[in-house]
Design a binder for these strands. Structure first.
Lengths: 217, 217, 217, 217
DNA sequence: AATGAATGAGAATTCATTCAT
DNA sequence: TATGAATGAATTCTCATTCAT
């Protein structure tokens, strides 16, 4: 009976949706509950989004745009790859803690199943990251910072693998547990250690010297 | 009205369940359809498994045990870490093609949402892998094959990250697309290239020499 | 925010309603859609008509009054019954083509279902027609134009039956098809033939001579 | 929890459906109510019929087959057309009283609107009637029983018009009222009168003698 | 007086689970 | 023990109606 739902309510709706989808999954979230929990009527939700699916996509997009922003910020500037990596890792650590639900949404879509979206979203989300990382690495190769005999696309892929798994490892129950199993129950108390070890790993990965070198010694 | 369901039918039931859960997701799979598709009555399914949830867990367990077996096989023997990695990568490539559904189930459960199970399963599944990898790496460090200033657990974690992402990248729609975006539309036609690039990455990651060494030359 | 809806808009509203009710049926028409399609707000529609039901009745009334007008025109004047019939048939043919929606509404309401209105409308609509036809026929009987041993009311009833079915046969999908089945796929291309055959039928019906009578002559 | 719904319940379901659809119309009938009123669960209704639409069609078909049977019976035998008409009229009078709801179903479908079915059903229902009547009349023409200058298809059409309207006039509220208006409030108490008057009308219609006869007078 | 966003009861449909055979 | 028809709570979505602007 109000004449326009407030920005704030509309925002709460998406937040509630994100929470619900993150908790229950696309298949088990309940539109009516989402509406009720955000203090608006189902009717209004449907007026705005038309179908459950479209509403889900709206939630997803909200999550994504936030995430993108964070990562874009962390990728900006013309800095050496390892410093960049460090910024990204820290961004993920921060973002994952503050926005676990958004991260779960990403994982939701990613786990596919109803994945008409999957492919569509992959392009939308990964495209930029992929080309950014690849060209970082290609440049680093050219500058001689990284060994020359690699395919920069594959290395970019593995670089992103590690960041992706890091996200999961901070957000999703399963991967949190896995991380604990691997690195001890205190991992979450020492983010810096994770930064250091990941940087070591990446540093090594990127700056390999063939065995001849070792033979010299 | 038969007097015991045949082993084969019981097996087909699980297979069908795995397929259904992989295709539709935990939230959208339909017990009745699964029963019908495996030529068994719902009644029997319930006699054996009690609830949908328990049936789901049985399917998951089947997927897992298969996967474990494959990976265990590939991890066996006392061989250098890179050779071991190579075996694992190839095992994943093979396994993922033959058993995409099992992999999808894993991702499904892992992506957490209904993740009462998640934590419980993490222990069950990752424990062995984690300790195996960690000790591999610890040994390699001791033998001087890998640089000494690392925490082998973290390196094991990252090592497994790459293998995990590789699995997803071969099985799940989203990650298949992502892989294509990173490495080109033909990635799936050249498994060997993937092996080579991953090994290069890992080789580098594990056998880092600090810059002083380079300066010596 | 205007200060009085124009006559023209109000008229368009009814037209749109008629179209919608004719297309979707009373049970499936959507007030909001009708309002939107006529460029008027639901609010205004409700200000003018109060409930969906009353709006429906207003649409119906509009249809009816138009139809009545057409038929009244065709019934006017003191001409022999067959000429009158001919005029009516032609009026129906013309009217049905130009105002199929109005006709459909009539059939809709008439087919009764939600027929609180039905009875009420029957009196309103059929009363005049009934008495007009009956007295035509009674007069014709008196003038010896029509055989004497009939009940003019029943003949008027059957006369109107034929005209009513003709209306349906030109407007409503089902009856259009039925007409095609009976008279061939080209019926709708030759209105004159219909006129001729109907007139023959009516002419016969009204001017019967028993066979004995004929033999006497 | 029973193991098979009894024939009787299944039949009651269709009857209840027919009643509901006849009363409320396709658009306003309520599947859940129909199920409840026939003492079965919605689930079962859906197990048997799949959708509301299919259930509606099943009800319609039941109505139709009954009606067809009645009319077929009345059309059988090689008797003169007026005797045949008499049988048909009586059959309609009887059938309409006993099965008003079935008749309303027919009217429902006929009033079109959701009329994908309309055309389909028209063929199914009218085809036989149309060709039967047409050939009756054609034969009567050949035997000299009916004037020769007519198109037997059009006469068959009008013949059926009268029977169709008779059905409506005995079953549907609106047309019942209309009939009362035309023929007086007691019409329904004197079926024989209706038979007589209709037969007179038809007899005349079919046995016309051209104007020469009249000129003799 | 006109607007149209918000509302929420109501309807169709699904599917995990039961239980008579 | 196996079966699968029956069940009905739960869920998505629609739409007549209201009322703040």
């Amino acid at each position: 009976m109000q004449n326009r739902i407030s920005e704030e309510k509309l925002d709460r709706l998406l937040e509630t949706g994100i929470k619900e989808f993150a908790d229950k999954g696309l298949g088990n979230a309940n539109i009516n509950v989402i509406a009720r929990n955000s203090g608006i009527s189902v009717g209004t939700l449907y007026n705005y989004y038309g179908t459950q699916e479209k509403f889900f996509l709206a939630c997803l997009r909200k999550s994504m745009s936030l995430m993108e922003e964070v990562l874009k910020e962390a990728s900006s500037g013309d800095i050496p790859i390892l410093q960049r990596a460090e910024k990204l890792i820290r961004a993920i650590q921060k973002y994952s803690k503050d926005h676990a639900d958004d991260m779960k949404m990403y994982h939701e879509i990613t786990s596919g199943t109803d994945s008409g979206y999957a492919v569509m979203f992959a392009r939308e989300i990964e495209d930029i990251t992929a080309s950014t990382y690849s060209s970082f690495i290609a440049q680093a190769v050219e500058r001689g910072e990284i060994r020359a005999d690699i395919d920069s696309r594959y290395f970019a892929f593995m670089f992103d693998d590690l960041l992706t798994m890091l996200q999961f490892s901070y957000c999703c129950d399963y991967y949190r547990e896995r991380l604990r199993i691997y690195c001890g129950d205190n991992v979450f108390d020492d983010d810096e250690k994770m930064v250091r070890e990941m940087i070591k790993f990446l540093e090594s990965a990127f700056t390999f010297e063939r065995s001849e070198v070792r033979h010299h010694e």
